[in-house]
């Protein structure tokens, strides 16, 4: 069996660009957002994500996406990294959700692909879905890529996010690649054991059981990681070497984020 396109791309994503260590390098770099208090970034970028998610007009989303893109540039996040780590995966996952909307939404027909037709309304809702998802993901990416991970967790806790949630987020970030890797290993061993092409039903059955194994593997893994943290004194609060100190410039940033969010909301009134 040949490896599928998605599988190959994901593998590339996981192994060649090693997200976690690359992200740490950018996070420690000397861009603009790197110098902003993590709490301000959490509040400001989260606000913009909410505004983007609630927005019903394409130009508004475009402005927010543009703002996110400019912030990425001044924070020296390479555009290639954004494409590989954020835009492509979001395109895959949201794309599969948006695709049916193209065909099943009734309305004025704009294009025909053989027996099926695409309506203007379908096209519009697919584009809205995708652009909102890409914008929200890029904004969240800005936070994660310009802030050392323990500081992100610490900042989330200052907003009283429950400990459990913070711990799960922490695990996911660190272990998503360990989990992806075991997924590939599983696929690989399946492929080497099976001779000839499998029936579609068989493939579906294997995929379903693989997901089950993977899920229980990752639960086991994150359970163990949590134990290892507890063993070294973790009691729910992450303590850092340097605690946060808001500077004058941080208040300016906070004001800036708030102004942008307010302007966008006012524009859509």
């Amino acid at each position: 069996m040949k490896a599928g396109f998605i599988e190959r791309s994901l593998r590339k994503l996981a192994f060649e660009s090693d997200y976690a260590s690359g992200a740490e390098r950018i996070g420690a770099g000397k861009g603009l957002l790197q110098g902003v208090d993590p709490r301000v970034k959490v509040a400001g970028l989260f606000g913009l994500v909410m505004v983007a998610a609630a927005s019903r007009q394409l130009p508004v989303i475009a402005v927010l996406f543009g703002a996110a893109f400019i912030l990425a540039l001044v924070s020296r996040i390479p555009v290639g990294r954004l494409a590989v780590w954020i835009w492509t995966p979001v395109l895959f996952f949201t794309g599969t959700v948006a695709l049916p909307a193209l065909f099943i939404t009734p309305g004025r027909m704009v294009a025909a692909l053989g027996p099926v037709s695409i309506s203007a309304e379908g096209l519009h809702s697919a584009i809205m879905l995708l652009s909102r998802a890409e914008t929200a993901a890029t904004l969240s990416g800005l936070l994660v890529l310009t802030t050392p991970w323990p500081a992100v967790l610490r900042a989330l806790r200052t907003f009283h996010l429950p400990v459990v949630f913070v711990v799960i987020l922490g695990m996911t970030y660190r272990y998503i690649f360990v989990i992806l890797q075991s997924a590939f290993e599983m696929m690989e061993s399946r492929r080497s054991r099976s001779v000839g092409p499998l029936a579609r039903a068989e493939r579906r059955r294997i995929a379903a059981s693989s997901v089950g194994v993977l899920l229980s593997k990752s639960l086991q893994l994150s359970g163990d990681v949590h134990l290892a943290m507890q063993s070294r004194g973790f009691r729910g609060e992450v303590r850092l070497l340097e605690d946060f100190h808001a500077k004058a410039s941080d208040w300016v940033w906070l004001g800036g984020f708030a102004a942008l969010a307010a302007a966008v909301v006012w524009w859509q009134r």
Partner: peptide
């Protein structure tokens, strides 16, 4: 102190420094 069999479950910090500093920091 417990050293786990699988170091992958024990190493969850971004750098070796942060990893080694984790326990003393939690101790306050």
């Amino acid at each position: 102190g417990l050293v786990f069999q699988n170091p992958d479950v024990q190493l969850f910090n971004p750098t070796v420094f942060d990893e080694v500093a984790f326990a003393p920091l939690q101790m306050g």
